[in-house]
């Protein structure tokens, strides 16, 4: 019966279906597919401004000899390797604590920890820049409670500037990831935890042996989202360092370097496009690795 119906008006269905998706697909083709293909083409070209000529692999060779690019790549990877695991773990711990129905003030804690997601990337970067000024509130608090003897040069020391960027992103995105875990935990049968508790499984073991394996698909999803986000990091660094990625390129990211190559220095679109493809390749590679890693452990 169903088959007959389908055969009868199948074509009619089809035309309508394509009509519904056509505007979106057209826009995606024009503003995603076409530019990404063009950008690949550009990456094999070289020249100033709009006068470009074919340059083969010259841009790729140039990458290896460009200390600023190497710096931007190292910084971006540092943010990724250090920040993403810290944030995911913190979000998981917070979610499993807040999943306890007997916790008093659960909603309040949840709202508070989620609140940073509401702030715009620019606004919070600007706030952090003020809070972490040399004589600012963070340093004076740290000194008052005796954690540090002299103010930490958050914005002027290469190491601390990176720490500040990592702290800032963690502040902004932990609650976001936590919400995903909380929602996933809500779907897990509570009795599994009850049984484990009655059997005397300690809280930490319940976390590592129950929560993490059960949440694996969501963890994979949030890890890939965070990877894409971190590899594209721009707004925060731009606004914490007046667009320079300083001190002396210590916080420079790939996106910021592309921006500088295109809009700040003498524009070299071909080379900038090559750098942008490094991000494309990294995102694809890391998403693949993460996906594969999550799959392997299933067996």
């Amino acid at each position: 019966m169903a088959l007959v119906r389908r055969a009868g008006i199948g074509r009619y269905y089809d035309v309508n279906g394509w009509l519904f998706v056509a505007p979106a697909l057209g826009l995606i083709a024009l503003f995603m597919i076409y530019p990404i293909a063009w950008s690949l083409w550009m990456s094999f070209q070289s020249g100033r401004g709009m006068t470009m000529k074919f340059a083969g692999f010259a841009n790729i060779v140039r990458l290896w000899n460009d200390p600023v690019f190497i710096k931007a790549l190292t910084n971006t990877m540092t943010y990724f390797v250090v920040q993403v695991p810290i944030m995911i773990l913190l979000a998981l711990i917070l979610a499993s604590l807040l999943n306890n129905p007997r916790l008093v003030g659960r909603g309040l804690f949840r709202t508070a920890i989620f609140l940073p997601c509401v702030s715009s990337l620019v606004a919070y970067s600007v706030l952090f820049k003020g809070m972490f000024a040399t004589d600012g509130i963070v340093n004076s608090t740290l000194q008052a409670i005796g954690l540090v003897a002299s103010p930490i040069p958050w914005l002027t020391h290469p190491f601390w500037a990176k720490v500040l960027v990592i702290l800032a992103i963690t502040w902004r995105w932990t609650g976001y990831n936590m919400i995903f875990y909380l929602a996933a935990l809500q779907n897990i049968d509570k009795s599994i935890y009850e049984v484990a508790r009655i059997d005397g499984v300690p809280a930490w073991a319940r976390f590592t042996h129950l929560t993490i394996p059960l949440l694996k698909p969501v963890i994979l999803f949030t890890t890939i989202i965070s990877t894409i986000g971190t590899l594209q990091l721009f707004d925060e660094v731009y606004n914490l360092t007046e667009g320079k990625g300083g001190p002396s390129n210590a916080t420079l990211t790939l996106s910021l370097y592309i921006y500088n190559l295109t809009f700040r220095f003498m524009p070299n679109l071909g080379y900038a496009a090559t750098v942008s493809y490094v991000i494309v390749v990294l995102v694809a590679l890391l998403a693949f690795v993460q996906f594969f890693a999550a799959r392997e452990r299933d067996r």
């Binding site: 269905y13 394509w18 009509l19 995603m32 996106s255």
Partner: peptide, 30 residues
């Protein structure tokens, strides 16, 4: 449209479209 009018071709297009989620904006901006 994707959910209501399914066909094999449209599923392929849909999957390809989802791949664009991985395109970083930095590679599009120039």
């Amino acid at each position: 449209g994707f959910e209501m009018f399914r066909s094999r071709g449209r599923e392929r297009v849909y999957r390809a479209m989802l791949l664009t989620l991985m395109i970083p904006f930095a590679a599009l901006m120039i």
